[in-house]
Design a protein around this nucleic acid. Structure first.
Lengths: 304, 304
DNA sequence: ATCAGTTACGCTTGGCGTAATGATC
DNA sequence: GATCATTACGCCAAGCGTAACTGAT
């Protein structure tokens, strides 16, 4: 019967399974997901197995762990669901705390200076107000805001001009563009490449440093097409910009970074990107519910 | 730690609890929800209790069963989550069935005739194609499409002109406007009220027939303000339009209905509504994923 | 007194961890 | 052989139903 929604839905797809699946997909490892969630590898394995049986399809290739097409589809839903669950929980457990604490989640290259001046100009920063800043990746920022661990997030990323940052949003978050600044390829000063600007395509064969915690990995850059498989890439997993620049200065590889942070750094020079046209964009992220509450801060930030 | 989404989320809010809670909120009864879901009243009671303990708040007033403010907030999230879960499941369990069967969920006053002619004109109705039509309410139609029990839904409702029908959508459904036609107050032919048209406000004290399965109850009409509590109202729970019109013709009460279905019916006349300005709107509802698959049908329906 | 939701209680099952097994590099 | 996922198994607890209980009409 079409109109009867309940019969036959007995199999309700456990949320623990979904959470474990999402964690495995995110980390690429059953072991890592298990420690993240406080489970045993065994438990996570059982969760994913249960989920796969429940939907009747394989969701993950093992060894290496990668999503199947079905897994990719499910993950999108799972992310939305888990995010909304976070929001629901944080909405309901909201202790009506007086607004003496503003928690801001930031990605490493987000414009924290703007935040500081915005707080000053709006006089939000009364003595009774505390600010906690913590480096998180984009997904972490979304999660932090959704779950109420942070009130707002300042996030950044490299995208085509005018495009919003790509986030898993379930229609619950509002984001406001703060800033778009030029990006450049960061090179050692003694690098042979000269000229006023450069095509990314001209550098496919170069050695790159991916710093996924600091900036989008090269493969995720908009307009980046494949490139030859197996070309060497160094990965730096930290969030320290100085370290990253030092690695570049010492010839370990190149990276795409906002020009601002490269300029004036010894041993490194920035070569503006000609194509594809990219910008380093910053956004402020707030729960839709909370937009009004943070209106003044948002406006001050947007005003610059 | 802000950036670590996983620690402390141990309490994952069981989906069964959420489902039971939503069912209770929908039906207004623990007992009814239990039978709908195939549980015992006791189990549903435990589910809701567990959920309330989990969020630390009362979600439902009992006796009569009604949502608390916190419950209302949670229900919105729960509906979205359960809907998305339905979509996820139906996406993954999609048997790659050849398109020989088109299942259409319809609300009682939806323009099925248009569907028939659209099918003829697009020649979708080849011999190998079957059509199943079943009456469902708006929420049922959403659920039917989300879970894949129906491919498309034809839904109707009374709204202010130009406004979409209100549905719990998690950003997964696409709806297309088909039609807006005038609504009228249906009266017995011998009713004393005369004139070319009528204000709803002039009829607050009249006897009404609410037919929630057939049309929006009066209290849900846009622009309906409260009205005196306790005025008598008859309820007809069926979906049969002829019965409804017979009730009106026999003086049991008035109702707001699309003018089209009233005109020409013996014993009943339609008085156009002057204020508030309302229309009977029809929409076609499809999973966003499936819009392309059903493009021709949608276009044909919209063309009229 | 009846109806509806809650609480008590026992039983079953599901889900976890430990540990052994298997596969892949 | 090391690493990582799966399977086996036992144990505990979560969750269900039955049935007694409570309160409201």
């Amino acid at each position: 019967m079409i109109g009867d929604p309940e019969i036959g839905n007995a199999d309700v797809m456990d949320l623990r399974d979904l959470r474990s699946f999402a964690a495995v997909a995110r980390t690429g490892s059953f072991t890592q997901a298990a420690t993240d969630l406080g489970y045993t590898q065994s438990a996570v394995s059982q969760h994913v197995a249960a989920l796969e049986q429940s939907v009747g399809q394989s969701l993950l290739h093992r060894r290496p762990v990668r999503l199947t097409p079905a897994g990719r589809r499910l993950l999108e839903h799972a992310d939305h669901i888990l995010l909304r669950l976070d929001v629901a929980r944080s909405e309901l457990t909201r202790v009506e705390q007086q607004p003496t604490r503003l928690v801001v989640a930031c990605t490493p290259l987000a414009p924290i200076a703007r935040l500081a001046s915005a707080l000053r100009s709006t006089r939000i920063a009364t003595p009774r107000l505390q600010i906690a800043v913590s480096s998180v990746d984009g997904a972490g920022a979304v999660s932090a805001v959704a779950s109420g661990r942070a009130d707002v997030a300042l996030i950044d990323g490299v995208v085509a001009p005018g495009n919003p940052l790509a986030l898993t949003d379930a229609g619950l978050l509002a984001s406001f563009s703060l800033d778009e600044e030029p990006v450049a390829v960061a090179l050692p000063t003694d690098h042979p490449l000269r000229g006023a600007s450069v095509d990314l395509a001209a550098l496919v064969d170069a050695q790159w440093i991916d710093a996924p915690s600091l900036s989008a990995p090269r493969a995720d850059l908009p307009g980046w097409q494949g490139g030859p498989a197996g070309e060497p890439t160094i990965t730096y997993d930290g969030t320290d910009l100085a370290t990253m620049l030092a690695l570049i200065a010492n010839g370990h590889g190149l990276a795409v970074l906002p020009g601002r942070v490269v300029d004036g750094c010894p041993g490194v020079r920035a070569l503006p990107l000609r194509f594809p046209s990219l910008v380093h964009r910053s956004e402020i992220l707030v729960l839709k519910n909370a937009v009004d509450r943070h209106r003044r801060l948002i406006d001050a930030l947007r005003a610059g």
